[in-house]
Nucleic acid binder design. Structure first.
Ligand SMILES: NC(=O)c1ccc[n+]([C@@H]2O[C@H](COP(=O)([O-])OP(=O)(O)OC[C@H]3O[C@@H](n4cnc5c(N)ncnc54)[C@H](O)[C@@H]3O)[C@@H](O)[C@H]2O)c1
Ligand SMILES: NC(=O)c1ccc[n+]([C@@H]2O[C@H](COP(=O)([O-])OP(=O)(O)OC[C@H]3O[C@@H](n4cnc5c(N)ncnc54)[C@H](O)[C@@H]3O)[C@@H](O)[C@H]2O)c1
Lengths: 222, 222
DNA sequence: ATCGTTTTGTGAACCATTTCACATTTCTCA
DNA sequence: TGAGAAATGTGAAATGGTTCACAAAACGAT
């Protein structure tokens, strides 16, 4: 068990903290490009609309990375956070459903930059199977289990219609995949040892709608 | 001021509660299709991986919609929630940046179903301006302010490269738009009276990565 | 070397959200 | 009509997350 792992278990790092690590990582990437050597919790907070105390507390869960009076070393902190998030490596990703959203995702370069390499595509449409997207040939969903295992896939992105998503997930789980990012708007059943996250775009639009109709003044904006 | 508005102000409804209303709405739509007349907080909770107490508490912020011993009337509750969320009406939406993700979003039927009608498209690429997507002709970004006002746009979706997103947002804000959904991976500056939400896909992948590397056992899964 | 300034790291206090637990209501069936 | 079962609605307790406030550390200027 790594140190980070130990910490995460003991202190029960919250989902919000993890999400904010993503924000810090993004801000640090920019600061690095802008040739900053160090950055204070104040500046980091300002850039992501958070509070300095929040930044320091989040980081303190994982160690003590800063220098009092100076701030945090940009490059070093960025490396540390990427290690904590597990994006200091590459993950082998498969994408299932090469339709509207699937095709967009294949072309999304940010994923690759953060270590998520899409190396397999699957669909069940004969017109799509065999076609080439960004150098990857679309495989037949019927060969899912076999090809997932052969290609050593660790993460699967689901971009199929909601009506078939549960069947597809069942197959993915059976093939041994433990991490799933789901774009279909429904709650998928998976065993306890499989991590699944949902990307639900309607939710954010509905939040905007609620805010407008109710004149909502939330304590915090994400 | 509506009743709902009053409630939202006084009790300071949390972001999590609002997000869960979206989940309830989704579950109720399905229950309606399955011809359920009523549903208990227990069943609703099970379908969205929440607790019955959570469901009841959330709903109780807005009124008392159920019948003891019976549960909640499916159709009625669905209507109530859509009124609370402000999706019992249509919103006029413009989409800016008709690239990979933009094109996918234009074709996404769920938005329309929930009252978000994409009625305007903008881009700055001459090859795209004038082209037709799902019956909508792409406008020149240079006419943004004028056309946004003319078309009475209330919500804007941003799908342009991160490098230009701030400029685009500034123009949108100047045109009087008060609600923005942003897909570019950066924190955009907007005045306090403008609602902005970010859709950040890397965040969820990074969460999965963190979970795998750290053997994370969160209290709650979204 | 010392002083004033800056900024981290972190318990403790505070605040928000979730869960508990139960009185209350309604329904069903005898 | 009454008894038992089901399930809501909601204060109160428990838990979890954020902010405060300050001691400690490091730096730069003199
Ligand atoms: N389009 C969007 O912008 C958008 C946004 C958010 C969420 N989503 C969700 O993403 C999913 C896909 O949406 P879309 O607009 O890309 O739809 P789409 O119809 O364009 O694409 C779906 C793809 O899945 C393939 N497919 C169907 N059944 C399959 C199966 N059993 N195995 C493998 N592949 C199969 C189809 O051949 C098609 O290529 C839907 O669940 C949708 O709700 C879409
Ligand atoms: N592709 C994805 O799956 C994906 C996923 C998540 C987020 N995003 C984000 O969404 C944004 C768009 O990504 P994409 O992959 O669709 O890129 P893209 O390059 O395919 O599309 C961008 C579009 O914006 C247009 N554009 C550029 N400058 C403009 C301007 N000043 N005014 C109006 N239009 C302008 C371009 O002509 C192009 O059509 C990026 O910020 C990206 O990070 C993309």
């Amino acid at each position: 068990m790594t140190l980070t792992e130990e910490v995460a278990r003991k202190k029960r790092i919250s989902e919000s903290t993890i999400h904010r690590l993503s924000l810090y990582f993004r801000a640090l990437s920019l600061l690095e490009k802008e040739d900053y050597e160090t950055v204070s919790s104040k500046e980091l907070a300002k850039r992501e609309k958070l509070t300095p105390a929040q930044v320091r507390k989040d980081l303190s869960f994982f160690g003590s990375f800063g220098t009092r009076g100076l701030g945090y070393p940009v490059q070093e902190l960025k490396k540390r956070i990427s290690a904590i998030l597990g994006i200091d490596r590459t993950w082998r990703v498969a994408l299932i459903g090469i339709g509207n959203i699937g095709s967009a995702l294949v072309s999304y370069k940010e994923f690759m930059k953060q270590g998520f390499n899409i190396v397999k595509l699957f669909d069940n449409d004969q017109r799509k199977i065999g076609s080439n997207h960004k150098g990857i040939v679309v495989s037949d969903i019927n060969n899912l289990a076999e090809e997932i295992r052969e290609a050593n896939i660790q993460v699967v992105i689901i971009a199929v219609p909601a009506t078939v998503a549960q069947y597809v997930v069942d197959d993915i789980v059976a093939a041994g995949v433990k991490a799933i990012l789901n774009f279909a708007p429904l709650n998928l059943r998976v065993p306890d040892d499989v991590y699944i996250r949902n990307e639900n775009m309607s939710m954010e639009l509905e939040y905007l709608s609620f805010a407008m109709v109710n004149n909502h003044t939330p304590k915090k904006v994400r």
